[in-house]
Design a protein around this nucleic acid. Structure first.
Lengths: 122, 122
DNA sequence: TGCCTGGGGGATAAAATTATCACCTGCTGA
DNA sequence: TCAGCAGGTGATAATTTTATCCCCCAGGCA
């Protein structure tokens, strides 16, 4: 048997998943909008991670067979139940960013700072 | 700038880190005890991950220059502040394990189920 | 036609993470 | 003296994750 942590890590395991979920949660649900909100992600990788989230039952994909073609991702109930955790992680990071920046080397993803539908997310 | 999520993921990023922190939090703080508590981890990897946690200011290492040699890891205040998140992740996983097991393939780490100091952790 | 937007994928390379293995220091007990 | 426990590391493999590239479809527009 594995402990609960295992499943959660498995689900959130992916460089951009938490960010994608956060994006969807603040109503950025179309692929092209996500690409704009998360500058460093690439289309390919985003699709792969979204597909995994979908297979894990965290998000659902809805295709509108209209023109122009439109696709929207939404959080499932299960996915929504992850938000408190994601928000707590985000909060913890913010609370300690000043310190963490000094001990963590690398450069990384981008940040929020609301705006319109064009704000960056993570 | 990066969003808070980034830092938190960076800190928890490592196959065994959350499990190690959980172990320390339930008073399994000696390396050899951790190895017994987390069956699948190897000494080498455990040391590497503990060192990263230490460099990130999440745990502290105390060496007792006594005989037999004794080493103990403890959570720093910062590390302790991560526990609510780790516990929430653990809880979420437990709450949804029945379902998650059906959508996640791989096999993984081990689980808790208290005992003495020999209980397995994660 | 040529080019842009919106959505998506296969093949493959590059990078990062984990795991293996062998070997080292000290002390204790048989 | 050999074995075992406690703690630990360098070098190297194996695996997993991410990223790159290039191509596909359809429709609008100029």
């Amino acid at each position: 048997m594995e402990c609960g942590l295992h499943f959660t890590k498995e689900v959130l395991n992916g460089k951009w998943k938490a960010g994608l979920l956060k994006a969807i949660s603040i109503d950025i649900k179309r692929p092209s909008d996500m690409l704009r909100a998360i500058p460093d992600i690439t289309k390919r990788v985003m699709n792969v991670q979204l597909r995994e989230l979908e297979q894990h039952g965290i998000v659902t994909k809805k295709i509108y067979h209209q023109l122009p073609l439109k696709v929207e991702y939404s959080l499932t109930e299960l996915g929504a139940s992850l938000l408190p955790i994601i928000n707590a992680m985000n909060q913890w990071g913010e609370n300690n960013r000043a310190y963490l920046q000094t001990v963590i080397a690398k450069d990384a993803p981008v940040l929020p700072e609301l705006d319109e539908k064009r704000r960056k997310v993570c």
